[in-house]
Write a protein that binds this DNA or RNA. Sequence first.
DNA 1: TTGTAGGCGTTATCAG
DNA 2: CTGATAACGCCTACAA
Lengths: 331, 331
Amino acid sequence: MGEKITIEDVASALGVSKTTVSRAISGKGRISQTTRDRVLKYIQQNNYTPNVVAQGLARRKTYNISVVWPGNYSMVELPFFQRCLMGMNEVTSGYGYDIVVSLVAVDEISNLKRVIEKRKVDGVILTRTLIDDRAAEYLKESGVPFVAIGSSTDESIVTVDNDNFDACKELTSILIAKGHTKLALIGGSTDLTITRVRHEAFMEAFRSMDKKVDESLIFLNQSNEQRLRDIVKQLAQKKVDGVICMDDQLAGYVMSICRAEKIKIPQDLRLASFSNSHMLENAIVPVTSLNFDDRNLGAVAARMILALIDGEKVDNQKLKDYEVVMKESTK
Amino acid sequence: MGEKITIEDVASALGVSKTTVSRAISGKGRISQTTRDRVLKYIQQNNYTPNVVAQGLARRKTYNISVVWPGNYSMVELPFFQRCLMGMNEVTSGYGYDIVVSLVAVDEISNLKRVIEKRKVDGVILTRTLIDDRAAEYLKESGVPFVAIGSSTDESIVTVDNDNFDACKELTSILIAKGHTKLALIGGSTDLTITRVRHEAFMEAFRSMDKKVDESLIFLNQSNEQRLRDIVKQLAQKKVDGVICMDDQLAGYVMSICRAEKIKIPQDLRLASFSNSHMLENAIVPVTSLNFDDRNLGAVAARMILALIDGEKVDNQKLKDYEVVMKESTK
DNA sequence: TTGTAGGCGTTATCAG
DNA sequence: CTGATAACGCCTACAA
């Protein structure tokens, strides 16, 4: 049970050559149907499986792809990444590929480097893009095929993403249309392209509806809950119509701050989030938000990287399947 | 930039044999300090990295370990698994290992099988245990080293876990000591050993304090929110003192049901959870719960599998580092 | 101390 | 249609 059987064993047991066995399995090269069946039957019964490492050496492939995850705690807890992973897995496993997860920080990509230098993977999926993206830069230099989930100013990088721009613009527009023109925006790190995209979409919504944005109500690079408290209080004082948070974590913070400060949602302040997850499921008030199909996003990214690995040409994609979910928090 | 340099290139460039280069790198075998330095310097400057696939073929190792995750949606969104992963990664990356994530369902372990049959990993970490554990059974047969996070009746399986029993018993005991003896327990699938352990700990708390459990207040195998609604209403009618939920998802459901049904926490009903995550962070009421160090759990599991791979003997472990966090929900 | 040769398990190139 | 034989890149007895 311990020792695995090799192609050589199969060959000699059947009185044929390794080549024949190999051909029977791969289907490549001419081979008679009868011997083919004979081989197939034998390896079936003796459950032989090719050693993927040896295959890898010969074919220069590993049948592994690396999925790069942010390595810091708060981010990796967002369900976005796992949802993507599940989608990716659904397609990669169908092609015999496995996924190795590489955790990298903005300035610490050693896990990615190792996997590339040692040639442990055939391709890479970046699950987010940064403004100054060391991982993407490194991958470009290395020549390993990769696709990035997100957007990039670098035309040479293959990307795929939810249509954050349109979605965020739409949500903002709806709020504006409802008369909530005095809107605040709270977002995370501007090192992430997604933060910028969402910001721009927010601006564009105002522009396209001929309304003026109050730029003093835009707070980016927020992550500190303490600082957020001041901001929220300030917003309440200023009697803004509503706040849009770029992610659920922020929205969650805002909600608990409001609760502590006796600020009522939606009476005193309306709240919306640009992304939706279980984090808001049990919220005090159901929160208006955007719903993306992250699983599908992962699946598409996986298909793209497989195509790239096969040397095909791949175009960027923007996935339109999102929905705006209006709830009590913006009534 | 595309073509990687091989050990042969290094050897001929330096006018030595491949063996020498290999020895210089591995440190095994006698070799003069001077040639050693010469080789090391060269591979440094020309940044040569051994091809791990070729190494793997020769050494029969892959420097990959598989981490098995539940493949269904609700589970994988629990932050437990990612926290573990981060801990694992911290130790495995230090030894040049990478992690391939294998998503498996209770009755669908093909992703695990593939990885084992194709010999793509040197060992496996199961991140949960089941009562009738196909994955564990399969791994035992295959002979591949593995450790399971959780507990098992099978003595031959190496396990490590948070001390769920003691922790859950303690939390329950505290509630009982506060006079809340009419307690309900709501848990998930009894196919998971963790559900059973927590259930037993709950019972044991009553036993050790000489109180009687009302077994009609124990609801296991719950996942349906609709069904839960009936249960919670029923509990309120029966005027139970409190409810303990086995995980945050359930606690979250209970909270939103209470909110909808105008059942006040903690006035009408006390609530506690056996595990703690961000899912409850923005809860209506801060929830009493158990805090485990999942990251560390992952790290320990990783050390164990590496030891097993190296042929060392490894003992089961129970990690004691948990804390009971009392909050408003059980006041 | 260093080098030679064979092996790890497959695939690919040529002949037959 | 089939079979030697040489890669693939590295490791490791065994010699020198």
